[in-house]
Design a protein around this nucleic acid. Structure first.
Length: 592
RNA sequence: GGCCCGGUAGCUCAGUGAAUAGAGCAAUUGCCUUCUAAGCAAUAGGCCAUUGGUUUGAAUCCAAUCCGGGUCACCA
């Protein structure tokens, strides 16, 4: 049991003994004591002042005295200031805690709880390379999956690839028109970038044709409809659906190029999946769900044949689930895919990592599933995240302001390299070790930057400032880890016997108190589906260690016993940092 | 216009019912012959968008208003 719950249960017992009244844990507020007061944890007294008809001061005195008297090994002091009871926990408790956990690399992880969660993330389009927004999605999805695993859930990572549709045909048409048979190989271009270039070429040509038609007197609407390249694209989509071999072959070839490119990026950023879904397989799914919905009276068919879900009773609008020509829309596929996934895995929860522009769509999906009485409807959870914007506003592919994923990683690596060379601490590293270190630091900086902010908030990426390795950053935390490892190396490990110390200095205790909170933190991160909780924690922990480190020497501690204690404290801090960063998908180096 | 999300230091963000609202960056100033200075310490910076309400207690809950964003497609 964590310390807060221990305190709460002792307080509840104390209140019952003193006043014969029962209280619930949720009625108590226990938090760490503010640094300007004496004590470790604080009980807020106001909440039961009324019920017990005593002044806060009197209550605090009574409870404090009872707690100290009944648990002399646990509480070693208390004081009451205004409505707050500040409790001091015995140094022995903290020392024992450290002794019991310092070498547990799994500290904070929970045994399997038998619950199954699917996490769908990444969801790329095969017409252009990944950009900064995709990175936020990938890092979030991977991290949330990892956090849930650590909390005992069975996790299945999935990815739905948007591999068909009009946008893919655009790249294909442009390739036919302009490529002259060029390939990624012949141009030495990464496959996804290669295809992305043709998507851009399509848009340029389309714009040119529209302009030409408008110059001939057409309205904008007419010009957009009549532009030959757009007509060609629409025809191509029909041909694709009809399975015309020359179209499907080109489609396979170009998607293959994109997958080769994605593979490289995924490998580099550490994204992996247990199961891939392709829209080209799933886009026809869901029609059965539509039939089912119609039969159940959840959907309505209009005169033109289109099918709708009426959500107006829930404050939403009517939502189209099938076109009048009987073809699928986005929602049709999502209904089908949800059903499909559930039949395959029988998940308890299905998390969709998707941008917040789809809040409405995902809300509608969940409500429709509920109306259809699907057992998995309640388990649908939209992990909605905000857009990554530039200081100048939204990234727009048309304006070339999109921050490409591979480019930004490359830039980070270069900065990491430059910085590492300037500091000159790892001159003995082999070339391979150096490359590994640059990658660790660069990706650590990038992942930490994108994960440290609450997912649902949109965030601003300022290229000038965001590539920083100081302060609230990944490299700061990594550095602290390397620093500790350096001490441990020089001490050839930590002795396992008890340190024999009976009292703690303030900075030592501060660190242990933080370490004790780690399991609670990862539990909270799992409940909230929010990795930023861990990023913030791990930063505070590293900062706290650095303060301790500059104030007290480990190697030249006042006594051998103190040295043992501090070695354990250092070792446990390193373990928790490595574990927490691991949950964010960030490696920590032994040296940097 | 309806619905949803946000507004906290110059900038980027924590804090969602509790004590005098916190970090990082940027600014100013100290600290490397002692375990890694990618560090530590200090100074300065706030009408928590506005107004009203609930409460012993409000940045946090409620209502209204203002500002910014998203969405309301037979697009995905």
């Amino acid at each position: 049991m964590n310390i807060v719950n221990q305190i709460k249960s002792l307080v509840i017992k104390g209140l019952t003994d003193l006043y014969g009244q029962q209280f619930n844990e949720s009625e108590l507020t226990v938090s760490t004591t503010k640094p300007e007061f004496e004590g470790d944890y604080t009980l807020v007294l106001f909440s039961f002042v009324k019920q017990l008809k005593k002044s806060p001061e009197q209550l605090g005195k009574d409870i404090g005295e009872a707690l100290a008297k009944n648990n002399p090994d646990f509480f070693t002091g208390y004081n009451v200031i205004r409505g707050f009871l500040n409790l001091t926990i015995s140094d022995n408790y903290w020392i024992n805690f450290l002794q019991a956990n310092y070498e547990d690399e799994k500290f904070g992880s929970k045994p399997a709880n038998g619950r199954k969660v699917m996490v769908e993330y990444s969801s790329p389009n095969t017409n252009k390379p990944l950009h900064l927004g995709h990175l936020r999605n990938n890092f979030l999805g991977w991290s949330v999956a990892q956090i849930l695993k650590q909390n005992g859930y069975g996790v299945i990572k999935s990815c739905i690839v948007n591999d068909r549709g009009i946008h893919i045909c655009k790249s294909m048409i442009a390739w036919q028109l302009f490529a002259n048979g060029a390939t990624p190989g012949s141009t030495h271009t990464k496959g996804d970038h290669f295809v992305g270039e043709y998507y851009v070429k399509f848009n340029d040509e389309y714009k040119r044709q529209v302009g030409e038609l408008m110059a001939l007197g057409k309205t904008k609407d007419e010009a957009e409809k009549e532009a030959p390249i757009m007509k060609g694209t629409q025809q191509m989509l029909l041909d694709w659906e009809a399975g015309k071999p020359e179209v499907t072959n080109l489609w396979k070839k170009m998607n293959g190029w994109v997958y080769e490119g994605f593979e490289v990026t995924y490998k580099r950023i550490g994204s992996d999946f247990n199961i891939m879904y392709y829209e080209s397989d799933t886009y026809l799914l869901g029609k059965q769900s539509v039939e089912e919905g119609l039969a159940k009276g959840v959907f309505i068919k209009k005169e033109d044949g289109s099918v709708w879900a009426d959500l107006t009773d829930l404050g939403l609008d009517e939502k189209l689930v099938l076109r009048k020509d009987g073809t699928s829309v986005y929602m049709t596929q999502d209904l089908g895919l949800a059903q499909n996934k559930y039949e395959q895995f029988h998940y308890d929860e299905s998390i969709y990592v998707i941008g917040d522009e789809q809040n409405y769509h995902m809300k509608a999906l969940k409500l429709i599933l509920k109306k259809m009485n699907k057992p998995y409807a309640d388990g649908v959870y939209h992990l909605s995240y905000g857009m990554v914007e530039l200081p100048t506003g939204r990234m727009k592919s048309r304006e070339g302001t999109v921050v490409d994923a591979d480019d930004i990683i490359e830039e980070m690596v270069n900065v990491a390299k430059k910085k590492t060379e300037e500091l000159g601490k790892v001159k003995d590293f082999t070339g391979e070790e150096l490359i590994g270190l640059y990658d660790t630091i660069a990706l650590g900086a990038l992942k930490f930057f994108l994960l440290r902010v609450d997912p649902k908030k949109r965030m601003i990426f300022n290229p000038e400032e965001s590539i920083d390795f100081h302060g609230f950053t990944g490299p700061f935390v990594q550095y602290t880890h390397a620093r500790i490892k350096s001490i441990l190396r020089k001490q050839s490990g930590v002795g396992s016997r008890e340190s024999g110390v009976s009292s703690l200095l303030k900075l030592e205790k501060d660190l242990i108190i933080l370490l004790e909170q780690y399991p609670t933190i990862i539990e909270q991160a799992a409940i909230e589906h929010n990795p930023s909780v861990i990023a913030i924690y791990v930063f505070i922990l590293a900062k706290s260690f650095n303060t301790f480190y500059t104030e007290h020497s480990v190697m030249n501690a006042e006594s051998e016993e103190k040295k043992q204690l501090r070695l354990k404290l250092s070792a446990m801090t390193a373990n928790v940092i490595a574990s927490g960063m691991g949950l964010l998908g960030i490696k920590v180096p032994e040296r940097m």
